[in-house]
Structures are given as C-alpha cells and as structure tokens.
Write a protein that binds this DNA or RNA. Structure first.
Lengths: 343, 343
DNA sequence: GATCCGGCTGCAAACGAGTGCATAATGCTC
DNA sequence: GAGCATTATGCACTCGTTTGCAGCCGGATC
C-alpha cells in the first residue's frame, strides 16, 4: 500500500514529467499560496501525480531559495530536568503541524554555552529560536535581533524587552499556594525563593510577599531565603539552615518542586514530620509528585500547553514579522495532596 | 568593528572578492580535504579573509550539493517518558562534539508515524537515524537501507538484522533482579513481562524464566503475565488480576519501573502492604524512584551512557560506511531500596 | 480583422556551495 | 630555449526549488 519510493528521491521534475507540465507549474500547484495561479484542472493533475510518486519537497533546496530553513532552534537548560520534556513535546507537536522541525540544545544554564549554541543554530539558518534559558539580561536577545532571527521565550519572561513569551501566571500560582497555606491556618510561612535573575524566581517571590501582606500578615525576612539554583540539594541546604537556626515556622512555600523535595530531605535528616510539624507546598507539579512520601501539594502548570503556545507565537512572528510581540500567560491551579495540613 | 556581519550573510563570493580569488578557490581552501589543492599562501590569505568577514558556510547550500547535512534524526516514542531524556542527552552531547546536530521526533509508538517521521527526516537529508522505537520488525530498517541512510538502534536490539545497537544487558539485569529476590528467600515470584515484540520485553522475560530454572525453581505459568504497554495502568491491571484471582506469590519482578508502580497502585486499592506482604522490584531506575513510597528496589541502567554509545556507533558508521555493525551492551546494576524484603 | 486583455504556463535566472575539466603559470629536463 | 610535467586557479555546470518575466492562447472590443 505504500507508495513511498525509498531509493532515489522524487523531485519536482519527476512530478512534472508525469503530469506533463513544467516543473515551475508543479511548484506553483503544490504551494498553497500560489495554487490560485494555475488552472484548477492542471493543479488536480499535478497533485495526483505528486501523490502517486510520493513526492516530498526537499526543504533544503527550498530553504536555499527562500532563505528559510523551516527549522527552529530550541534552547533549554537541561532536558533531564522533568520540567522540560513536556514543554519540548508541546513545541515539537505544534511546530510539526506547520512543517517546522525543532533543533534542540542543552545549555546547562551556562550563558557562554548558550551564546555558542545560538551561534551554531544561526549557522544552520534556523528561522527562529525558542529559549527556555533566558535570564533577565539581554545578551541573547541583542545577538539574535542583529542577525534577524526571531526569538520567543518559553517559561521565562523579560519585561524590559519587546519579546513574545509563553509562561504560566507565576504570580497567580504563588498566590494560590500561599492562600492555601493561610486558609489552613498557617501564618509563620517560610519561603524558599528561586534565583531572582529568572522571571520565574522573581515573580513567585514578589507574589509571595504581596499575598502575605494582602492577608494582613507581615512576612518575616528571616523566613525568606533565596536559592541559587532550582535544585534539590539547594532546597535541602536552605531548609536545613532554617531548621538549624531554630526559626519558627509551620509551613514552607517553595519556588519549585525540587526545592520542596530538598525540604523533605532536610526533614528526614532531622526527624521532622511532614505535614504534621511542617507543611510544604511546591510549584510545577512535576511527573510523579503524587507518588512521593508524602504526596506533594503543589501548583500545577500546563507545561505542554505552554510549549505549544510558544511554538504558536513563533509561527505567528514567522508568518508576519510585523505582528506585535505578545505575552501568553497560562493559568496554573492548586493540587492539594498530603504534604499540607492545618498547623 | 564587529566581524559578525549580522544582516547580510557572508558568502563564498564575498570572501573571494576580499581575498582576490575565485569562489571555487575559496571553497577548496576552506575545505580540509581539498586544501592541499591550493597554494599554501593563497590558502592562508583566504582563511584570513574568511575570518575577517566572519564567514560561516551555509549548511543548507552545502547539503544541497553534497547530500550531507551533518544532521542526525532521533526517533523516540515519547520524550515525556522519563526513560528517554537521559538517553537523548547522551546522544546530543556526543554528537555535538563531532559537529552533528540531532533532529528529534516523537512517534508515540505508532509505526505509521514512525515511517512518516523517518520520511520527513530523509527529506531533510539527515545522514543517519538513531531509533529508540524499533519493534522487532523490519519496516524502518528496510526503508532506510534502501535510501542509504545509516541506522543505529538505541535501547533496542534486532537480532535478525545486521544493525548497530547500544543497549543495556537486559538479560543480566533481570538475572540480578530475580537473584536478589531468590536470595531473600522468595520462590513464588510473579513476573510482569513487557510487550514481547520489543527486545527489552523479550530479553527480560526469557531471562526471568532462565534464572528461575537455573535456581531450581520452576516458574509458575499462572504467575507470568505479559503487558501490552510499558505503563502504570497496565501494571495495575495485571497485578490486580493476580491479586483478585487469589494467586499465591510473595514477590513481583516487573519488566520496568512503570509496571512496578502500577503494582503499588493495585496494592494500595486492596490494602496489600509492600514489602511486608509482597516485594516488588522494578527495572530502569527512573529519576526519583528513591522517593516513592516505598522507595523502589530496581535495576539501574546507565541511560546517558547508552545514548552516548549510540551516537558513537553512528559516528563510526558515518566515518567509514564499511565498518561492521556492532552491538554495545552496557552493564546494569542492582539498586536495593525498600520495596523488597524477606517473605 | 486588428487590438487588447487576462488567465495560464513555460523559460531562465537565481539561491550558495561543490567539483570535473580546461587552462594558465611555473619548474624542470635535455 | 623548446618540450613537457606539475601545480594552481578559473570556468561552468549542478543540486532542487522558487519566482520575475515573457509568451501563448482564446475571447471580447471596436
């Protein structure tokens, strides 16, 4: 049943020969936008021939002519972080339907490597780059702007620059987390903030403070610690510090799930019971959080949809370079499990 | 003055003009393999001009002519399965050092989509395809062979065909798992086998039977169930079935971690305690398995290294098409946690 | 019946790089 | 100093596709 000729690639000329027309006509007939230029009957004939031969346009040749590679670079810090696979999957799926292919690279959060990877992608003529890595500086943005490569941020925002982004509403997310703790009766709430040079870290941090104040409880500066990375050992270190300093708190709002898991570790070493003695709420709802001991109460983020939205934004910009930049914020939701209880 | 001309891309002709030679000479001077053809002094002049202009060859144009893209397709079933990110990371890292770029696609285990994706990759002139998806049939292999595209399997083998692969030693892995249970004193051991049309499913299954027999205990056919997919709900279904049929067993050897987690669910619903009443051992050592309740005893697989090895094999074949195919088997190890105990 | 028009289609020139072949420049031999 | 081999370079075509332009045709207009 398969008409996919594997051996020699089928070209426009082959289709043209079969359809009895000139290759140029085939090109026009096969291209949505120029199809109107050719007689409907001819177009049908061409389409049929193309299908019969299993013709697939050669994007390389097309790209040479159009200065387009139909390829999008995707910069992520580390694929191994469970946050990113669903985002990437969303990007891939959306791009695929539009005939674009993603080219991914892991930067390990090294700004230098990030620029290098971006360079390599530029050499490969990517039409745009979707970056999940952008800190709140401008290096990457400026470099790409100069090279005429579109940039879209995913999971990160950048206020000062006109750049499209797809993120979760981190402000709302942290508000849901804190309000959950408040409603359980907690007031001595510690906050493990993420690095403040990421929009995710900063937004969640500010939202923590705001939500506390809005509820009429003044956040204790001694209970607010800023992590250097979004990782488990860092959460363990900071939470351990709070514990060892004898700070009084009955709950922790962590800036992401890994920091929250770090708290679990700090508790385990010191015999602190969760949630009986301290409640913990995470952020992201990574896979398998429901299976941890105890199952983690956290903020669910629609990562796949965020990825798809980022791809959508990229396609938008590629279609019409003059379209204004746009920020898409997707709504998070609270998932109550068993790491939180009344104090 | 910045050398990186951002706007207009620098082409061979630009370099030629600056160096005062013909573009063809530039092409030869810049290409390692043909550099010998041009005068050393000229070559130096060209190199210098190229550097000054910040010339970067256009891989699209080059690919059109040479039928090489320095691009490798990677077919995986689903990036969202925690098994694959480390593999992919290993592939990317190794390929990157050799100047190759991976192009990934998710097939969702749909054979038709797999062929489609492979087709699309072929159109993009990938030099080879690394597939984590291959069932034990020949479709993909034949199609690629015909098209002259190198194929390397990762995490899957294919006995009947001469094709390179990088896998874990599944036979050894399952032997370690079963011997662990036997050494604890279990003899009534159930086995949740993976789909037998994957080499992973089949190898582990056969190894289970062999190891049992070698220890002098005849595996009870009623305790061996074959899963249709490597997923949690399937594990829950099968394990629930064993429980509801009143089969007597004190341990389960699951063909992967997700099936093992499914057992946890089946236990939870029926109030069976693990490991007190039934021990469970998984396979793969996915991330976070140590945090489950109870922490899962499982077989650790060096996924990153497997990915890197697959990339290595691909580079080998690309360098010398006539090199024989090779199967790399990496050694797994037993990780004892708290889901297993004496019966 | 000459003119014009609009709809289709073919022609040919690109895009940027690689490569077989011809040719110019050089060095060597006798 | 003529003849010839050797080296270095240029020319022109090619990869598969897109696209401006020209040309063909049938029909409508005067």
């Amino acid at each position: 049943m398969s008409n996919v000729k594997a051996g020699a690639a089928v070209t426009l000329r082959d289709v043209a020969r079969v359809a009895g027309v000139h290759p140029a006509t085939v090109s026009r007939a096969l291209n949505e936008e120029t199809r109107a230029l050719v007689n409907e009957a001819t177009a049908r004939r061409v389409l049929k021939a193309a299908e019969k031969l299993g013709y697939q346009p050669n994007p390389i040749a097309r790209g040479l002519k159009t200065n387009r590679s139909y390829t999008i670079g995707v910069l992520i810090p580390d694929l191994t972080n469970p946050l990113f696979p669903p985002i990437l999957r969303g990007i891939e799926d959306r791009l695929e339907t539009a005939g674009y292919t993603p080219l991914t690279a892991n930067t390990d959060n090294d700004p230098e490597r990030e620029l290098l990877d971006a360079q390599a992608m530029r050499a490969r003529q990517v039409d745009g780059i979707i970056a999940a890595t952008a800190r709140r500086d401008h290096g990457l943005h400026d470099a790409l702007l100069e090279a005429g490569i579109e940039l879209v941020l995913v999971n990160r925002r950048q206020e000062e620059l006109p750049v499209s982004s797809a993120t979760a509403d981190d402000t709302l997310g942290m508000r849901l987390a804190v309000e959950h703790l408040l409603s359980l009766g907690h007031t001595r709430i510690a906050h493990l903030a993420g690095p403040l040079d990421y929009s995710t870290g900063l937004d969640r941090h500010e939202s923590f403070l705001e939500t506390m104040r809005a509820a009429g409880v003044d956040p204790d500066p001694d209970l607010v610690l800023v992590a250097e990375v979004f990782r488990e050992p860092e959460g363990e270190r900071l939470c351990g510090q709070l514990l060892d300093e004898g700070r009084e708190f009955t709950a922790v709002a962590a800036a992401n799930d890994l920091l929250a898991l770090g708290c679990y570790d700090a508790f385990a070493e010191r015999g602190v019971r969760c949630p009986e003695e301290v409640s913990v709420v995470g952020f992201n709802d990574m896979p398998f959080t429901a299976r941890f001991a105890p199952p983690l109460t956290t903020i669910h983020i629609p990562h796949y949809e965020i990825g798809a939205a980022a791809a959508e934004l990229m396609l938008e910009r590629l279609g019409d370079g003059d379209s204004p930049t746009r920020e898409i914020r997707l709504e998070p939701s609270l998932v109550v499990r068993q790491s939180t209880s009344a104090p």
